[in-house]
Computed example of a mutant assay.
Amino acid sequence: MPLLRKVAAVTEATWKSLVLESDSAVLVEFWAEWCGPCRMIHPVIDELAKEYVGKLKCYKLNTDENGKVASEYGIRSIPTVIIFKNGQKKEAIIGAVPKTTLASSIEKFL
């Protein structure tokens, strides 16, 4: 099995530079340690990050540790995946959804 690239964490401190000022589309998974569905979607996000390398940046944000960002974007349930482009929130996908659902959302913004 090929080695999966782990998706980097983004924090309140790095949010602006990594997400809002990114020159490419950015996918952020909002998650928490205690969340079962988050663990189900982690490998999917890892795969997408590998498939869209060079076209899409992927990050994970722990909502327990970065509550300010999570509340700024109205995160009510996790996992929530948000796609950003040019510093703007473009689409939010809530829950552990199939990879194809995430991929078709990503394609719209590349």
Results as ranks from 00 to 15, higher is better:
K57W: 03
D64N: 11
D46R: 02
W15R: 02
P79C: 03
P79A: 06
G74I: 10
N86I: 01
E72I: 00
L3F: 12
S17T: 14
K89H: 09
L3Q: 14
V7R: 08
E21K: 13
P37D: 09
W15V: 05
Q88W: 07
G67D: 04
W15P: 00
L18V: 01
F30I: 07
E47I: 12
E12M: 08
T101F: 12
N86H: 14
M40C: 09
I78E: 06
A103H: 06
K16M: 10
F30M: 02
I83H: 08
F30W: 07
V28N: 05
T14Y: 06
G67S: 08
Y59R: 04
G36V: 11
G95F: 00
R39P: 03
I93H: 02
V69C: 02
E107W: 11
A25G: 05
V28T: 05
V69S: 05
F109G: 05
L20P: 04
E29G: 01
E29N: 12
N86C: 00
E72S: 13
G87A: 05
G54L: 01
T101Y: 10
I82N: 07
G74D: 01
K16E: 15
T100A: 14
K50M: 15
A103Q: 12
V53F: 13
L56M: 11
M1N: 10
T80P: 02
I93F: 00
I94T: 12
A49C: 04
A70Y: 10
P98K: 03
S24V: 13
A103I: 03
P37C: 08
S105Y: 06
K85F: 08
P2A: 15
G95P: 08
I41Q: 12
V53C: 12
K60T: 07
I78W: 07
A92V: 04
L27W: 01
I83D: 03
E12Y: 02
G67Q: 10
W15F: 11
Y73C: 10
S105W: 06
A96M: 08
K60M: 08
R39Y: 09
M1S: 14
F30E: 07
K108R: 15
I106H: 00
E47T: 13
R76C: 10
P43F: 10
I41D: 03
A8I: 04
F84P: 02
G95K: 02
E51W: 01
V81W: 07
E21L: 13
A25S: 12
T63G: 00
L27N: 01
V19T: 02
A25L: 04
F84Y: 05
K99T: 04
L110Q: 10
R76E: 11
S71R: 12
Y59I: 01
K89R: 15
G74M: 06
C38H: 05
G87K: 05
K6I: 11
N62M: 00
K99Q: 10
L3A: 14
A13F: 11
K6Q: 14
P43A: 06
M40Y: 12
V53W: 09
T80V: 04
L61Q: 06
A13W: 11
T11P: 09
Y59T: 00
L18S: 10
I41L: 15
N66F: 06
Y73V: 03
